[in-house]
Design a protein around this nucleic acid. Sequence first.
DNA 1: CTGACTGCAAACGTTTTGCACGGTA
DNA 2: TACCGTGCAAAACGTTTGCAGTCAG
Lengths: 132, 132
Amino acid sequence: MKDFTNMLRKQHLKATPQRLAILTSISKYGHINIDHLYSEIKLIFKSISLATIYKNINAMTNALILQEVKLPSSKAVYEITKQNHSHLLCIKCNKIEDIVIDLQQTIKIVHQNNFEVKHTDLILSGICGHCA
Amino acid sequence: MKDFTNMLRKQHLKATPQRLAILTSISKYGHINIDHLYSEIKLIFKSISLATIYKNINAMTNALILQEVKLPSSKAVYEITKQNHSHLLCIKCNKIEDIVIDLQQTIKIVHQNNFEVKHTDLILSGICGHCA
DNA sequence: CTGACTGCAAACGTTTTGCACGGTA
DNA sequence: TACCGTGCAAAACGTTTGCAGTCAG
């Protein structure tokens, strides 16, 4: 259980009910796109505006509370910022799973090629165990 | 030197001068976004429409002649389809470089976790040799 | 109490579509 | 010659902005 209120205050963002609902929803689904998030939040705040969703996603992404994940063949999804990790994307059921993969060997090889890696984005697309 | 005319015909697409110019331009820059491509092609075809650029990019991407690369913090770029590879993205000069990295070890580990990898997308962001 | 946030509507930028004309095969 | 592709304009779509009212700190 995360203390979203504190996460927000540390970044000098107000802990509004809308923001807490957004964070709770993202946390529940792990990864969520704007449309899905909007329909989820509307269940709680019937009058929430899509503009509010966007403003908050942007504010919290800039504050590094959230992270955007650009997927190869669909809309970007958002997740709560955590340890750097890779993503498994099932091309059948579209489920996204986090996976921690050690890329140190790869980073080392690239470094020998005169490139200093600061961040990695790895998406492995394929068939998940459930769909196989 | 590639035979773009044949590449197109094999996919039952007509080899129009506009398409050949698009492919030549992408080939020249390696990776290019829509806006840059549009301004490049306009130098040759002053009256080309942005709609034509989009239609052709979509047609050729669907025909697997082109591939879209979604970048973490900027617009997608397009490249001629080639052997599966990863990308080095310099966060200073924004240059993109192709790099062939062997991910078999990673794929094997993931496979043991009951996930069959079909495709990988890896972007390594950092500082290139020139900007260091 | 004050500045930040919300919700609405309008604006904006990007991408797609419909249609008449033109060019490839 | 028959279609596919082009170019233009309009439409559709996703996202951002401005503003008046509201709320968290």
